[in-house]
């Protein structure tokens, strides 16, 4: 496995992330997120191989269970009771896709170019870590974008999951070793958060008859 593979995987995960954020059909969104998570696991495995760090394989397995199996399963189960298409986001599909693609390409380029501001060590400035880090920060930015522009509760959860995955990739790229308990802790946390959000969303759906978060405005500011 060469370092080129890792760079390719970074690009692949970016495309899958955009798909997860932009696809309007909720079921397909969940599947796109699953694809994103599969690429995430592949990145961890190839990183473990390149850096010759066997402890990362455990991370990949935990990541596979939590992010490829459990999370998409919970989301898919939840969207079964919902209408198939998400609530119209604040920005239309064509414009949103164009905007997000442009923003992300610019972001990726800027992050890569000015990485010395963010990356603390010399090692982080070398390929393929450099591309991986730029990709991680871009996914983080995409997560924020999704949280800000989407009204549907399911999309909000996806946005949050992307945000977290961005941070986890930064963690992977920058800190070579991490205690197993720590990474299992972080990953189970994500599952618990998503479970709670979906649980509350399904309650909200029963009471409000909708998963439109903009309608959650009974309480004054």
């Amino acid at each position: 496995m060469t370092e080129q593979t890792l760079v390719t995987l970074t690009l692949a995960i970016l495309i899958a992330s955009i798909a997860a954020a932009e696809i309007r059909n909720l079921k397909n969104t969940a599947l796109a997120y699953m694809l994103h998570s599969i690429f995430l696991c592949a990145i961890i495995i190839s990183y473990a191989y390149i850096k010759d760090n066997p402890s990362l394989y455990l991370w990949a397995i935990t990541c596979f269970i939590t992010k490829v199996v459990v999370l998409p399963y919970m989301i898919l189960r939840f969207v079964r009771i919902l209408p198939p298409v998400e609530h119209r986001p604040i920005i239309g599909f064509g414009i949103s896709l164009t905007l997000v693609s442009i923003i992300l390409v610019v972001f990726f380029y800027l992050f890569k170019k000015y990485l010395f501001l963010l990356a603390p060590t010399e090692a982080a400035m070398q390929e393929p870590v450099r591309s991986l880090l730029a990709g991680a920060f871009t996914i983080f930015a995409l997560g924020i974008w999704t949280l800000l522009t989407r009204r549907d509760a399911v999309k909000t959860v996806i946005g949050l999951a992307l945000l977290e995955n961005g941070v986890h990739l930064v963690l992977l790229a920058l800190t070579p070793t991490l205690r197993e308990t720590t990474m299992i802790g972080i990953l189970t946390n994500v599952v618990a958060v998503v479970f709670l959000l979906l649980f509350l969303s399904s309650n909200i759906y029963q009471v409000f008859g909708s998963t439109d978060t903009v309608k959650l405005s009974e309480l004054k500011r």
């Binding site: 959000l197 009471v207 409000f208 405005s217």
Partner: peptide, 11 residues
């Protein structure tokens, strides 16, 4: 309604 909304926002 209100408490679900508050819980969702909180998390």
């Amino acid at each position: 309604r209100a408490s679900l909304e508050a819980g969702y926002k909180y998390v």
